[in-house]
Computed example of a mutant assay.
Amino acid sequence: MHDAVLSGQKPPMPPRDVVARSWSRLQAEGVSPARCEDVVFADCSELESRRTRTALRSVLPELRSTLTEVADDAKFIVVIADTDGVVLWRDGSRAVRKAADALGFMEGARWSEDLVGTNSVGTALVEGAPVQLFSAEHYARSHSGWSCTGSPVRDPRTGEVLGVVDISGSAMSVHPATMALVRTAVRLAESTLWRERTVQLDKLRAQAAPVLAAAGGPALVVDRHGWVVEAGGIAVPERLAPPCAEKPLLVPGLGWCVPEPLGAGWLVRRRADRADIDLELDLGASPRATVRGDVNWTRALSPRHAQILRVLADAGPGGTDAAAMSEALFGDRDHVVAVRAEISRLRKSLGPILIAQPYRFADNVQVRMFG
Score class of each variant (00 low, 15 high):
Met1Glu: 11
Met1Trp: 05
Asp3Glu: 10
Ala4Val: 03
Gly8Ser: 06
Met13Cys: 09
Arg16Ser: 04
Asp17His: 09
Ser22Leu: 07
Arg25Tyr: 14
Glu29Leu: 15
Gly30Trp: 07
Gly30Tyr: 06
Ala34Ser: 07
Cys36Asp: 02
Val40Ala: 08
Phe41Lys: 04
Arg51Asp: 08
Thr52His: 10
Arg57Pro: 00
Ser58Gln: 05
Leu60Ala: 00
Arg64Leu: 06
Arg64Ser: 10
Ser65Tyr: 11
Leu67Glu: 13
Thr68Lys: 04
Lys75Gly: 02
Phe76Leu: 06
Ile77Lys: 05
Val78Thr: 15
Ala81Ser: 15
Ala81Gly: 04
Thr83Gln: 08
Val87Arg: 10
Val87Phe: 06
Gly92Leu: 12
Arg94Trp: 06
Val96Asp: 10
Ala99Lys: 15
Gly104Glu: 13
Gly104Ile: 15
Phe105Ser: 03
Asp114Leu: 07
Thr118Asp: 05
Asn119Glu: 13
Asn119Phe: 13
Ser120Asn: 06
Ser120Gly: 11
Tyr139Pro: 09
Tyr139Phe: 15
Ala140Asn: 08
Arg141Ile: 11
Arg141Asn: 05
His143Cys: 02
Arg154Gln: 06
Arg154Gly: 00
Glu160Leu: 07
Val161Asn: 05
Val164Cys: 08
Gly169Phe: 09
His175Thr: 09
Pro176His: 08
Pro176Asn: 10
Met179Ile: 07
Val186Ala: 03
Val186Lys: 01
Ala189Arg: 14
Glu190Gly: 13
Trp194Pro: 00
Trp194Cys: 11
Val199Arg: 15
Leu201Glu: 15
Arg205Cys: 02
Arg205Pro: 00
Gln207Asp: 13
Pro218Ser: 15
Pro218Ile: 03
Ala219Leu: 13
Ala219Cys: 12
Leu220Asp: 00
Leu220Pro: 01
Leu220His: 00
Val221Pro: 10
Asp223Leu: 07
His225Pro: 00
His225Glu: 14
Val229Cys: 07
Glu230Tyr: 00
Ala231His: 03
Pro237Thr: 11
Leu240His: 03
Pro243His: 08
Leu250His: 04
Leu250Phe: 03
Leu250Gln: 09
Gly253Lys: 08
Gly255Arg: 11
Gly255Met: 08
Cys257Glu: 02
Glu260Ser: 12
Glu260Thr: 11
Gly263Met: 12
Trp266Ile: 08
Arg269His: 15
Arg269Asn: 14
Arg271Leu: 08
Ala272Phe: 03
Arg274Leu: 01
Asp278Pro: 00
Pro287Met: 06
Thr290Leu: 07
Val295Leu: 01
Asn296Gln: 13
Trp297Ser: 04
Arg299Asn: 12
Ala300His: 10
His305Asp: 14
Ala306Asp: 03
Ala306Phe: 01
Asp314Phe: 01
Pro317Glu: 03
Pro317Met: 02
Gly318Lys: 02
Thr320Ala: 02
Thr320Lys: 01
Thr320Gly: 00
Leu329Lys: 15
Asp332Gln: 09
Asp334Tyr: 11
Val337Lys: 09
Val337Leu: 06
Arg340Thr: 14
Leu346Met: 08
Arg347Ala: 14
Leu350Gly: 04
Leu354Arg: 01
Val365Lys: 01
Phe370Glu: 03
